[in-house]
Design a protein around this nucleic acid. Structure first.
Lengths: 345, 345
DNA sequence: CCATTGTTTGACAACGTTGTCAACGGTCGT
DNA sequence: ACGACCGTTGACAACGTTGTCAAACAATGG
């Protein structure tokens, strides 16, 4: 019932403390016989090593830290509430972490704050993680990435290419936007509107470019009037949708740069008496709510949990073996087709 | 650039290591003079104590663990994706934790699993947290709570009354259901349907009881035919809504036991050609997506972040001072009125 | 003025693990 | 048969902090 330490296991198995340590860490050069004796004692006593002591004795902390910003995200929900990322990341990285005895701890830090560096350094000092995962918009902060690299903390940047500065785990936003647009074209749409995202995020430009790519490839002229600015908020989506849908030559389909603005578009359309067969809407991020809208929203799924799994894998790999992996890891996106996109009538 | 330990601070300030420790922990019996010298050195060097070493040396780990179940929740989204709790809890507890140098780590454990006890014990052994926060349905698991208590780990149970077994931080589901129902009655509704939740959760019964309370209080007879079973999934909401809305004497308003089933109800209503003025819908949980539906869904907001803040406060209090607080902490809910509830025509 | 009590400070051990290094015994090559 | 080498095992220090205890000193009461 009381605490079980490595010493208890060593005594029970009749071996040295260090031997138990070796077995627990899967180190080579332990005979089968001792290995079995130790494992038996471990099972019997229910021994689990203390992370704190591991960190003290050795070089690893068995801890990964994910740096999130809850305010400045692409796909947060209206009025700052709710952000799907943390939940999905945790879920995605769980298996990988569990398999290697690692944990993942989330830290919320606002990207704009003046003392960001100080805060991050404090986190490093207190937690001494074996690696750190940056989510947008932190992952775009090159100064931050370099500071971490200087301190020898392995870094994964989510949502952007690594380009040699830390690991990058990301999807191809441009290709995704192109595929989404192509999906609309294949359904017979010719006038396709676009609601842009905040220029603060690289992904915004990528998505616009992909949209342009697909139009160009299909020999559809790009009409600047069909491109409306937005900043990922519901309100900006309303404004943009009103601008697009009140035109006499209004588009028959709209590609919104995130779900929130797409839902705003549905909202406006409904108010204007425009129903889905007459307007298709497609968007980015596939956040949980979109499948529950009426109609369900077709959306590009960003592989957040897969990215997190890959991120954990990379960091644990570096921490375990010291081996360095390639910098860039491109993961496939998914186009989740639902009721909001239909063949043009 | 290299690691700054307490020894460096002690040397810089010209005091003993233990004195620095005292200052860092706000212990009494340190003269003003030394305190200032130490703080100056701390600021100058950017010293932040290592959590691991703190855990090794002292009795505290400065770590709280939140035990979540991602599969079996009231307000998860369709097909198991997305759960608002973790994000909100983290956000809610952040300030409290930060102020006391604590961290919060989330662990995902499935409630049904046979080796739940083993898993939890492993978490305790590895992390040695100063307290543990259980979310539904774990918070209902009395055996689990007792096991933790036996091991002297302070426990907060979220979403249920503590009743002397650990702390309970919760809202009054029954009162909330009553208030929601009353809201409908005040709008002139007399025939009010109810979609129940899974009996696996205590909250389901509470909500039904509250519904009954309000009807009774308003002298509206309860029609058993207006109560449809559900299990918190979108599909069950569809079935329930179809049953309720296809009646010749269909209700003019429906209270659904969670958002997902409410959205399903809107879905079905739309399909049947019933629009909002003719049907009001209200629900529980106020998950992020509901404000984006068309129309926005009126919902009872569960104070998750406030509950998490309170939970952290309680656990940190016990860990710091050893003082024990009252067991039960009732937090107010909020009724978020949006477009889905209107005066009966 | 002394005994007593309380306040401030520091020396040192302890926490549970891993890194380092040395000792031991066996195998191989000559 | 001997030395060199390798695989296996263990003794011991180290990690950075807090708990314990004692020393030095100041304040208080008789």
């Amino acid at each position: 019932m009381t605490k079980v330490t490595i010493r208890h296991v060593a005594e029970a198995a009749g071996v040295a403390v260090k031997t138990v340590s070796r077995v627990m860490n899967g180190e080579p050069n332990v005979t089968r016989d001792l290995q079995d004796r130790v494992m038996k004692a471990v099972d019997q006593l229910g021994y689990v090593p203390s992370m704190a002591a591991r960190r003290m004795g050795g070089r690893r902390s068995y801890l990964l830290v994910a740096l999130n910003d809850r305010q400045n995200t692409i796909n947060n929900w209206r009025s700052g509430r709710g952000n799907d990322w943390i939940d999905q990341m945790l879920h995605g990285a769980m298996l990988t972490c569990e398999a290697h005895g690692y944990r993942m701890l989330f830290e919320l830090v606002q990207a704009g704050s003046e003392d960001l560096d100080r805060k991050v350094v404090a986190i490093l000092s207190a937690l001494q993680p074996d690696g750190i995962i940056l989510t947008p918009p932190h992952s775009q902060n090159l100064a931050l990435v370099e500071m971490l690299t200087r301190r020898n903390v392995p870094v994964v940047r989510m949502g952007v290419p690594g380009k040699g500065v830390g690991f990058g785990v990301f999807m191809d936003d441009r290709a995704a936007a192109a595929e989404a647009t192509r999906h609309l074209i294949d359904l017979g749409h010719q006038r396709i509107g676009f609601i842009a995202g905040s220029p603060r995020f690289e992904a915004s430009r990528q998505r616009l470019d992909g949209y342009a790519d697909a139009l160009h490839q299909a020999d559809i002229g790009m009409d600047e009037a069909l491109i409306a600015p937005g900043d990922f908020t519901f309100e900006s989506g309303v404004t943009a949708a009103e601008a697009l849908l009140s035109r006499s030559d209004r588009p028959t389909a709209i590609l919104a740069s995130n779900d929130e603005m797409a839902l705003a578009t549905l909202h406006v359309a409904s108010r204007l008496g425009i129903r889905v067969p007459d307007l298709s809407v497609i968007s980015f991020d596939d956040t949980p709510g979109v499948r529950l809208s009426v109609p369900g929203l077709t959306s590009v799924r960003q592989p957040i949990s897969e990215m997190a799994a890959k991120a954990a894998e990379l960091l644990i790999g570096v921490s375990r073996t010291g081996e360095t992996a390639p910098s860039d890891h491109l993961l496939p996106f998914g186009l989740e087709v639902r009721g909001s996109t239909t063949r043009v009538t």
